[in-house]
Computed example of a mutant assay.
Amino acid sequence: MPQGICRLCKKNSDLKLSHFIPKFVGKWVKDTSATGYIRFNQSINKRAQDIVKEYWLCECCEQLFSSWEREFANRIFYPFMNEGKSEARYGAWLPKFCASLSWRTLTYVRSQNSVRSEEVSHALDTAESALASYLLGDSNTLGKYEQHLYPLEGMTETSVRGAPPNLNRYFLRTMQMDLLESDSASIIYTKLPGFMLLGLTGHKESNRMRSGRVAMGEGRISPRTYWWPTGFAEYMFDKVRAIETVYSSMDKTQKDKITKAVLDNPERFKASRTFKAFQHDLAMFGNSAFSKTNED
């Protein structure tokens, strides 16, 4: 086990392999897939058994994250994704979980791309420090660094023009991390199957988006009208189209592997959440859904 500086508490310690998207999410995606494998956009011609992880946190910080993940998994994620629930009550563990996701996305994306203006880098340093302070218990508030959680369901229609015909597969199956940056405000974007988390850093439309804001104490997730930032739908559609482009470039050998896996075990395919997400796209977009695929 390597030793180094924990990225959260900054203490020198033995470092654990830490997942950026929680491990239980990756396991659920793999277990409910059509073939039992997952693929990543960066290495589309290679099947994977696990999601991105690095030696990032010490044992103490890893356990902190694990306790909040367990609450989210058992009280919200599994009931929503496996049982079709659409309401859940939560406690102070949910803002901790959401802030931990945003912190992980922020630190990981920054580690992959360090080219930024001085103003943006300073703003992101401040956001990262504020999130870490809250996660470690040094602060009991997130201040302007609000967490907005959006549950996503299968859709059969939309009034938004230009929706890509693999949109439901993106909503219900895809994992993604990104950072939308500007000098005045940034959005930390973490996409889980069935959920979207926006970590705001002083966004001017935060009041308009308050229906999705995670309360600092007790609260409730339920069906309601949710608001996204202006222009966010088109940004998300671009992400969906990018996945379509990547999967279209997959080698024929890999496409044949997927086809063989489906033919060898058609019952698994029919029972998979991959197929169920595709059925939503088929109902919404008709035959144009057939040429778009998101995973094994």
Rank of each mutant, 00 (worst) to 15 (best):
Q3V: 01
R7P: 01
D14A: 10
D14M: 07
L17R: 11
F20I: 07
P22V: 02
K23T: 00
F24D: 04
F24A: 05
F24M: 08
G26H: 08
K27D: 07
K30T: 13
T32E: 13
G36T: 08
S43F: 09
S43P: 00
I44L: 08
N45L: 04
K46T: 11
R47L: 12
A48R: 11
A48S: 14
D50A: 08
W56M: 00
W56A: 00
E59V: 12
Q63K: 15
W68K: 04
R70G: 08
I76S: 02
I76Q: 05
F77S: 02
Y78T: 10
P79L: 14
P79W: 14
N82Q: 10
G84I: 10
A88Q: 09
F97D: 04
S100G: 12
L101H: 11
W103R: 04
W103G: 05
T105K: 08
L106P: 14
Y108K: 15
N113A: 13
E118F: 09
V120F: 09
A132R: 09
S133A: 15
Y134P: 05
L135P: 10
L136V: 14
S139L: 11
N140L: 06
N140W: 02
L142H: 12
G143M: 11
L149I: 02
E153C: 05
E153M: 07
G154H: 03
M155A: 11
T158E: 01
V160P: 00
R161D: 11
G162R: 02
P164H: 03
N168E: 05
F171D: 08
T174C: 13
M175A: 10
Q176S: 14
L179I: 02
L179E: 02
D183V: 14
D183E: 15
S184T: 15
Y189F: 09
M196E: 13
L197I: 07
L198N: 07
G199L: 05
T201Y: 11
K204C: 00
S206T: 08
N207Y: 12
N207H: 13
R208H: 08
M209K: 10
S211Y: 05
S211V: 03
G212T: 10
R213Y: 05
R213D: 03
G219N: 05
R220S: 13
Y226N: 07
G231W: 07
F232H: 13
E234N: 12
E234K: 14
D238I: 01
K239G: 14
V240M: 07
E244Q: 12
T245E: 13
S248V: 03
S248Y: 13
S249G: 09
D251T: 10
T253K: 15
K260Q: 12
D264A: 04
N265F: 01
E267Q: 12
F269A: 01
A271E: 12
A277K: 04
Q279H: 10
H280Q: 12
A283E: 14
M284F: 14
N287M: 15
A289R: 02
T293C: 05
E295H: 07
D296C: 09
